[in-house]
Design a protein around this nucleic acid. Structure first.
Lengths: 222, 222
DNA sequence: TCACAGCATGACCATCGAGTCATCATACGA
DNA sequence: TCGTATGATGACTCGATGGTCATGCTGTGA
């Protein structure tokens, strides 16, 4: 739902196309809000259309069904997280800086789109148990997509000697587990508001992780 | 949903009454399953009735609405947790034994009724944000009800010098936060199956907590 | 200015499910 | 055995909502 995620993709398209994407994006934004507030079932297409300032029929010019609209919103969520990882890892940072930055930004994103993140996780879970598919595998695939750049970053860190040699994906998953900690705090509204306090907390967590994965040295200094 | 929670309340009632409670309990059990599998909105009274082997109309002789049925199921959940706390704290145990036993049993309960616990938390959350009431306060009231015996147990521990003097409710809440750790693992299907391994994990966690709240002594021994 | 393509629209339809109630089965007391 | 009360039942009602489509509007190019 970041503006960048919209405009970045539009750049040099004919106006018609750009406008169409714009409208699609507005519908998606409304869907984010309504799905977030009401959950999938209680959200109505009428309300989403009204919020987006379109008629209901218009929605069907952009999405084939309520389910499809939800899937698109969910995909947007994944893309946004992936974009954060891409951007952070694209800069020339140490592994530690990378992880810190990623954590700060993704928690900020969580906070901003808290309601939809919540609904998305619920519905995703419900869907994966519904049709008997393996929950974990499906979920894992999505998580992997969003953090792939982090895994690559860790891999590079291993080659450059910053990080202990191991499977980078394993470390990436452990890292995500640690971030969940913040997500939980968010749910309980226990997260500090100020950027400074937040950075302090993130730093504590990153220290634990970085010490845990740091290349072993003889001096063992923290 | 424990059998005890049903029969314990029935003891010496006239047969009519007992049967009525029994049937109510069966409906509640079906509701646990269907709400758990489908979530509140997707669950239908037809299915709940079918599972309970009653006609749909019969449900309305026991509960006034779908909402009411859900509320009753939710209350049953709280009562069951409360019953665990009551029973554990009723025995003559040290604080540490109490907490260990409570953890083992509540995690076992979580595991058995995982789906409904999940749905219940989701819906409870949704409801509390819906009507603008304060989420945290409402949620806290329910949590407090279920762990009240634990708070009392901690309070006694303080008087008998086992536990550092402080607000027992604060400690009780911290303790619940720690248990959440297991709940999360459960969600990810990462919890050990064997009783022995489980007890091992619980012990680790309890040690952290007990060391943290132990009355301060000069020798400072772990 | 006109014709046409593309798109927005909301009235309409079909489905679904919560909740009702007339009816029927059963138990029990007279 | 009969009459009554209690309670189970599922066909039915009715509102809500996902999805459709005939209509009309707007912008563009001739």
């Amino acid at each position: 739902m970041t503006d960048e995620s919209t405009s970045a993709r539009d750049e040099n398209l004919p106006r018609k196309e750009r406008e169409r994407l714009m409208r699609r994006s507005e519908i998606l934004a409304a869907a984010f809000n309504v799905f977030g507030e009401k959950g999938f079932e209680r959200a109505t297409l009428d309300e989403i259309a009204e919020r987006a300032e379109f008629g209901k029929g218009t929605l069907y010019n952009y999405f084939s069904s309520k389910e499809d609209l939800f899937a698109a919103a969910f995909q947007r969520l994944l893309d946004d997280f992936r974009a954060i990882a891409d951007e952070v890892c694209g800069q020339d940072l140490t592994v530690r800086e990378c992880l810190t930055e990623y954590t700060m930004r993704s928690v900020a994103y969580y906070r901003e789109h808290y309601a939809f993140c919540h609904t998305a996780m619920q519905e995703h879970y419900r869907r994966s148990v519904e049709d008997g598919s393996d929950t974990r595998k499906d979920h894992q695939k999505n998580v992997d997509y969003t953090i792939e750049p982090l895994a690559r970053c860790l891999d590079l860190g291993m080659e450059s000697g910053q990080v202990r040699k191991a499977d980078p994906w394993t470390y990436a998953h452990i890292f995500v587990g640690l971030i969940d900690h913040f997500y939980l705090q968010l749910t309980r509204e226990q997260l500090p508001d100020s950027e400074k306090d937040m950075r302090q907390q993130v730093d504590t967590l990153i220290t634990v992780f970085c010490d845990g994965i740091a290349a072993k040295e003889k001096d063992g200094r923290h």
